[in-house]
Design a protein around this nucleic acid. Structure first.
Lengths: 418, 418
DNA sequence: CCTCTTTAGTTGACGGCGACTACAAAACAG
DNA sequence: CTGTTTTGTAGTCGCCGTCAACTAAAGAGG
């Protein structure tokens, strides 16, 4: 009678026998990403495929080493014991990079998500400028590729997280105010630097990639409708809708930093008034929480977000009343912005990262209260604020995950059979 | 190298041979909805299917009367002339209903979108209450079913548009403040009233359905990322993302009426402060545009939106300065709300309906200017405000279209072969 | 008028895929 | 040791899209 909301997405691509095979291979791999190890019968039950089909697919996946036998695990029940299989792909590498204001982060994994490389370089991207930053990124990437290869995995994809507007299709950073970048063809530069044309390079917004990381394996794992908010130097947002990243018509969706939330508010660095960033940015919290001499009189940007938020957390732990008032104020504005997003997107959770998660204990209660007061649907608290457990640097992790996700969604791309 | 943004949606459903057939049938039907008539070869080129496959599929579609031969059209070129086929399905009916504050609208079509029934009853839904309204809706639906059958089409689906929060999965109206409804199981009631269990009943938000109508055949036809805003008694929003309706985790997405846009603003009927509705609702425009005695001192709701906006349009046409100031003010707030949505969703267009479209000439220039001032991405005016051409009553039309869309997306559901 | 060329659409053989049935494998219960 | 139960695998079948060959229907050119 009534229609369910989970509509089969109408493909714009013709279905062929080969595509059918790919869809089912992908289905099995995705199931194994959710749960490993599983037996063939369990996979058949979970996916709706026939037992024989799973067996058939599995033999191909085993041969291509995307999956490995994971021992006979006897469930104590009667009957033949089930032989588990698990996601493997130890010979396939994925690299996630993040360029941010004062660091470059690298996260490399194999297909199963096992970490192979993990690094973080302090780097003043603003002072260095785009060219030197790109060169540094190039050497960092080359080193990471080498390290991944030494670990036995051939990198097949790289994703780069950037705090700004990205033309994902062309791999161009359109505008990254905090980096001072404008129309930087990052994908092309990086491709030239590493000189391995078989490695696919993706560029995306850092909050988008973090959002996807939360969806795939964070605190909100499996929640198909979620929003991720990052509080670093700027405030960014990533939106996952129905299990897919929502990028919008130009890939600029989720630009929460300059949402106009207070027409009577103060001036923002962008020239507008009452941007959300002026209410919930770390600079504003510091301004509210600390005596003016404590944060430097030179008017420079907030130095290191991670250190700064740790400093504030210490003060809050000691019960500093000024800091408590400040976090309450910022928390309320966080909730107001969250309410706008909840009314528009109706997500199940809003995951906060960066400094928001570092101070979650003090910010989120106020934010949650304000969210519930101002959102239409949350009569029974359907949408919750949750702190990310990935902390700073979720973006590079998310970037690597997105590479793997792209491979698993289209196993045809996995051509490396060394 | 760089990834395109159009990612193949990873199906959660196994692909079988039968499903493959359905996907391709649907693909052909959707192509014919975009353009009719077309020859088989043209369809093959447009869809990427092989000529022989199209031929094969077409013979099934012709046999099931979902498609008809549309004459030999000779393009003047050399070679055998192409035989056009067009979407048909004249024996398949779809009904779209809309229940609003002061009317019930009915729109019935066949599969090709040809209008078979079109009616609009004045009806005071608020005064009548849910029970009497449901009875009236039941008789109106039964009459529409009869009329559709007389026109030679068997109705296979009904969609009902409601100005409020709808549990689409269960067909329950959770909350419709302007109707005074709360937890009304509309689908069940309607199913009982019409007594035809083979007719599928869907209930959805009016703005959602209008948004889809705009996507399928309105001013923004084919634009996969758009937002629809309706200015009736309340202000509603519908969001189309990547060609799919975005409903959110609970189906409550796009609730724009009570977006908090001005913390220092006036009291809203919902008890909160500075809701967007208090800035761009018709009531606010009337308050700003007309001397107080002109709109009744009894404090009752604005009588008929359509008539009221026509009245204001006359005054604006005569150059009434007070009205011009009022529309400029409301237009700016419309633009501010649009900027919030543009920053979050990054749509290509924002289609405005209801009274917004009736006064578009005066509202939209101010709204567009404010949108561009406040949105991050629109450095070169990527997102535009556009007035709907469907006017009041787009929702019932959109409802019928959604029924057809569901059939075309899953031709398996079309079982009527009388 | 006839033949050649060009394009549209159909027919029949072919290969690939998932589904189904039957069967082998590997455990436990008694 | 035998029956039972569950797991996993061959073999067969039916369906689908693809491909090559073919027919259909027009104009071009002599």
């Amino acid at each position: 009678m009534a229609e369910g909301r989970r509509q089969q997405p109408a493909a714009e691509v013709p279905a062929s026998v080969a595509a059918m095979r790919l869809v089912n291979l992908s289905l099995v791999l995705r199931q194994l990403r959710v749960q490993s190890p599983m037996s063939r019968v369990e996979i058949a039950d979970a996916t709706g495929l026939h037992r024989t089909t799973v067996s058939n697919l599995m033999s191909e996946l085993l041969e291509r080493r995307l999956v490995r036998e994971a021992g006979t695990e006897h469930a104590g029940a009667i009957g033949r014991p089930r032989r588990g299989v698990a996601l493997h792909g130890a010979h396939i590498g994925a690299l996630g990079l993040e360029v941010n204001v004062d660091y470059i982060a690298v996260h490399g994994t194999d297909l199963s998500g096992r970490a192979l490389v993990e690094r973080r370089f302090a780097f003043d991207a603003v002072g260095a400028g785009p060219d030197r930053t790109l060169r540094r990124l190039g050497t960092a990437t080359t080193e990471a590729i080498e390290a991944t290869r030494r670990a036995g995995a051939a990198p097949v994809g790289i994703a780069v997280a950037i705090p700004g507007l990205v033309d994902v299709g062309r791999g161009i950073v359109r505008l990254a105010p905090n980096l001072g970048w404008h129309d930087v063809p990052l994908a092309d530069h990086l491709a030239a630097a590493i000189g391995s044309p078989e490695i696919r390079i993706t560029v995306d917004n850092d909050a988008n990639l973090s959002a996807f990381a939360e969806y795939l394996s964070g605190v909100a794992a499996g929640t198909p409708d979620l929003i991720y908010l990052t509080g670093e130097v700027g405030v960014g947002g990533g939106v996952v809708v129905g299990g897919m990243l929502h990028r919008g018509a130009d890939g600029f969706a989720g630009e929460v930093g300059h949402l106009p939330v207070d027409p009577a508010g103060g001036l923002c660095g962008c020239g507008r008034r009452g941007c959300w960033e002026t209410k919930v940015g770390l600079a504003e919290l510091v301004r509210l929480a600390m005596p003016s001499q404590a944060y430097g009189l030179d008017g420079a940007a907030v130095p290191d977000p991670e250190e700064r938020s740790a400093q504030i957390a210490r003060g809050l732990g000691e019960g500093d009343p000024r800091m408590l008032r400040a976090t309450a104020e910022v928390g309320r504005w966080l909730g107001l912005g969250g309410a706008i997003m909840a009314n528009l997107f109706n997500p199940r959770v809003i995951v906060v990262g960066g400094y928001f998660s570092a101070l979650a204990e003090w910010l989120l209660p106020h934010a949650q209260a304000e969210l519930e007061r101002l959102s239409v649907a949350s009569t029974d608290g359907r949408c919750r604020f949750v702190a990310s457990t990935f902390g700073f640097g979720a973006a590079s992790r998310g970037a690597a995950m997105v590479v793997i996700k792209n491979l698993i969604d289209d196993p045809h791309k996995i051509t490396t059979t060394p």
